[in-house]
């Protein structure tokens, strides 16, 4: 379900053998994509979300857990501030809160919604707040809701898991695609059944860079791709998904 960016008639895609100045990132197709990372997924996750919004336009609904929605980080990654208004986040701090937010998703999805993001989707259900059986059932119910949203609204849904174990197993089975992101000495590499790329070799000191600086560079470098949609942004936006989304006074 994950493929390289469409050629679009322009010669902008890069492959491993034929590196051009625009780095490659996987695109997110409708259905659930599980982003599988070695450590906390904040960097690649935020980069993928921003890239998707800049490329495909529209808004993202982000049901957060375990502090992945770091606004400061996203702001520093984002090539333009405006895109931050298009990410709508609500955080679940308990299993019941997370479940409530997921339950609301079907009503929240609007015509301009182009992506749903659920980092550490299993995370809240693991605590000792609820009896294990109840928590597991609540998790499965949330997962079913998310899968239904992806299917019925034909939307890409990006999820990560808190831990890779038996509890999270239903998440990988429900995923339509798994996208592994690993760090290599040449920089991060995305890999799925249909896609493999070293994102951006980016010079000899690739590994020495902080992850943040790394992803910032990638997004900047992909600017030529984003340019086209950035202009139509305002037009596409339409009525905002959040009624109380006024950004200050």
């Amino acid at each position: 379900m994950v493929r390289t960016p469409p050629p679009d008639g322009r010669d902008l895609t890069a492959t491993r053998d034929d590196r051009l100045d625009v780095p490659e990132l996987p695109t997110l197709d409708p259905g659930i994509t599980l982003l599988d990372t070695e450590k906390r997924a904040t960097g690649p996750l935020q980069a993928l979300v921003l890239d998707h919004l800049l490329l495909a336009g529209g808004d993202a609904l982000w049901v957060d857990s375990h502090g992945h929605a770091q606004s400061g980080l996203l702001a520093r990654l984002a090539p333009c501030r405006r895109v931050l208004d298009r990410v709508h986040v609500a955080r679940g701090f308990t299993p019941t809160q997370h479940a409530t937010l997921v339950e609301r998703l079907p009503d929240r999805v609007a015509p301009e919604t182009s992506l749903v993001v659920l980092p550490a989707m299993d995370g809240q259900y693991r605590g000792d707040e609820l009896p294990t059986e109840d928590a597991r059932e609540l998790f499965l119910r949330s997962l079913a809701t998310v899968a239904r949203v992806a299917r019925e609204r034909d939307l890409p849904v990006l999820v990560t898991r808190h831990r890779d174990d038996g509890f999270a197993a239903p998440l990988s089975s429900a995923a339509d695609a798994t996208l592994a992101c690993e760090r290599t000495e040449f920089g991060p590499r995305f890999r799925s059944d249909e896609f493999e790329t070293l994102v951006y070799p980016g010079g000899p000191d690739g590994t020495a860079q902080t992850t943040l600086a790394y992803w910032t560079r990638i997004l900047r470098a992909r600017n030529p791709l984003h340019g086209a949609t950035a202009e139509t942004d305002a037009k596409r936006r339409g009525p905002t998904a959040s009624a109380a989304d006024a950004g200050g006074r």
Partner: peptide, 8 residues
């Protein structure tokens, strides 16, 4: 749960 808000 909390309401959705923009990243900004």
């Amino acid at each position: 749960a909390e309401f959705f808000k923009s990243m900004r």
